[in-house]
Design a protein around this nucleic acid. Structure first.
Lengths: 212, 212, 212, 212
DNA sequence: AATGAATGAGACTTCATTCAT
DNA sequence: CATGAATGAAGTCTCATTCAT
């Protein structure tokens, strides 16, 4: 197994590809990519195994699709502005709450796809391409703009702060959001709401506190 | 494949089991548990396949071993006190730095075993047992004590704070520490040292800032 | 897969068929018929897979085409006379040299097609038809005429001699000519020229020596 | 599919290997190697598919076995002397008859294995190794000795003659012997006996006739 | 007539697990 | 107890052939 999705220019091909992508997404709700067989993807899509291989060179060629789906979902979240839309009226702390809450909601909805993307960015980094990098860069830039919009309050270098914020919201929300009961968060007793607020507060404190 | 390691009371059996555990750990440095075959574990241990099945009911029975190893490594880090040993002389912020740095160093050393434990706590939560829960609880309790030791500075409920701190140091350090170049941290430009400090600052801000 | 090429009476069809035959010949230069896919034949011909099946009932229907090509190439070698043209001035031995040399040169040029014809005459004798028999008979008759033209020197029954000569030139030249480095000839150290001469000498000796 | 038979040192392994080799030989009587499936080899040997792969890395690893079998059969023909045993009493021509006849008989008996060896020496020369070269060299040396034993009659350089004789007996007898009804010999009307004699006569004439 | 997407049987291979020695 | 040969279910992938457009 290695690289390579096949071009699908014709409309029927395109439809087939879409069916397969949708099928994969459905399958991912129930099991890990590793545990999904090509035959299952085909069956769930209402197609034959051979048809899968006409669109995707091999099973691994589906991995980049995970990121493709993730990306398109994220684009919906971000809207035209290119970042999560927030109301700045009540200041930085409130903006961070809004971001944390929206991100949290998004994560809950797209759990299975985000989890798969995270997992395979680690398991098969070779198969991902620039999509992932672009996603991460865009995220960091988004936070950087935010930080710059509140430059009077923020005591950090905007570039570093942008990266750290992106990193923090990603990792902090992802662990509990994606793996909740199973992962590191499994023994936490505080509510989702309090948790999300706390996550935002970590970020706020980091931004506004004087550095040594 | 399902559960169940077999008791190994006799000394020869014990030695066999130890060989297998060590073998597994060595194998994990090179590949994922999923991609390690029982035959490989046996070969690396200098034993026959059949012998493996005398000690472990099936391949899955090795998964709890991951946590067992993790636990024993962690015990070394914590020492007798039951928590990371720190010098409180220079105040809370400095204590957090010390913790972040020691945890970071530990993570670097035990990368492969921690990564495997994290991965399988998600992939096969059914196979873990209490070991994991105990680990997490102990962690949270440790941070809670710390917080209580600085109760004058800290503005948070100690229980919640203990849990959030444990969660934060775990997730924030793990992502970059374990998956660095592949994961969410892959596009960060700041140095390890600055990163570790920033992680501690997130925690400090969270603890000392007035809640709304 | 079984038999049957479809009639192609119309001119467009004829053109399609010719394209496919040429395509097959090109493909054969690079791989065995077994390893050539119908899709490759189509692509190389600039046609769609379905179009192939309009002209050829199935993949096997291409096998007789091998012989068709072989036949047409042979016709070019033989010219109008129906046999290889030789200059009889210098006697039988020299004539045999000329034949060996021309046959050898021909074989070198048409290697891939002759090799395929030989291979499939063995692998799928059921799919060949009379073409092959006609070819062989014509060959034997040609050599018989030659033998008769030198009846004073030749000590053999002309019919037997014709068959044996055809057989000998075919097999002796083919092995080294077609499979050179891989086959039975792979360890021979003598030059092509000496080899071809030796092959002719085998024939000469057979013809002129008194039978017991 | 590529190289690699696995070592089989233990007696049970050895027995398994032998079963598989015997099974392959039986299968080869009915179809080409390409058309024999691994499952068939296993079934015919009374073993499971997986067992095949414990002894042979992949299907291709069976190809060298063809030569191994061929070689062992040939050793039986040659006996201790290292060459076909003949009675020199009646001179060179008679010796050649004896050789032709014994070789012919051998070929008839071992048809399927020799045919497979010939076929795969061409189709997959990469998979053969030195066995084949050794076989060919030994053959040429054997004929060279023979030629030298009759040096008064023979007009050829012994090395060249050895090679040409080996080549001639191989190719001339193989074509009719192995592929008789299907190949180039299919239209011959002379009897086997006459044919074999003629083949010997080709060799005799070549050896004793004055070169130009 | 041509097209090329879709089909699905069947081939190869892996590997967790069993069991005779 | 240890061994490692044997097992066979299950997965990936290929490709000749069909058929709707």
């Amino acid at each position: 197994m290695s690289q390579g999705a096949r071009p699908a220019l014709q409309s029927r091909s395109r439809a087939t590809r879409d069916k397969l992508v949708a099928s994969l997404e459905r399958c991912l709700r129930e099991k890990t990519f590793e545990n999904i067989t090509v035959a299952e993807i085909a069956r769930e899509a209402g197609l034959a195994v051979g048809t899968v291989y006409r669109r995707f060179e091999n099973k691994d060629a589906f991995i980049p699709v995970l990121f493709e789906i993730y990306r398109s979902r994220l684009d919906e979240l971000h809207g035209e502005a290119g970042g999560i839309e927030v109301d700045p009226t009540n200041g930085l702390r409130d903006v961070l709450y809004q971001i944390a809450e929206k991100s949290w909601a998004f994560m809950q909805e797209q759990k299975h796809i985000i989890a798969a993307a995270h997992l395979y960015s680690r398991l098969r980094p070779d198969l991902i391409g620039d999509e992932w990098d672009d996603l991460l860069d865009a995220g960091a830039r988004g936070y950087q703009s935010l930080v710059e919009a509140f430059s009077d309050e923020v005591k950090r270098d905007p570039v570093e702060a942008g990266q750290m914020m992106a990193y923090h919201f990603n990792t902090a929300l992802a662990e509990r959001g994606l793996y909740g009961a199973e992962g590191v968060a499994s023994r936490m007793t505080i509510s989702d709401a309090a948790f999300v607020r706390a996550v935002a507060d970590f970020a706020y404190g980091y931004l506004v506190l004087e550095t040594d």
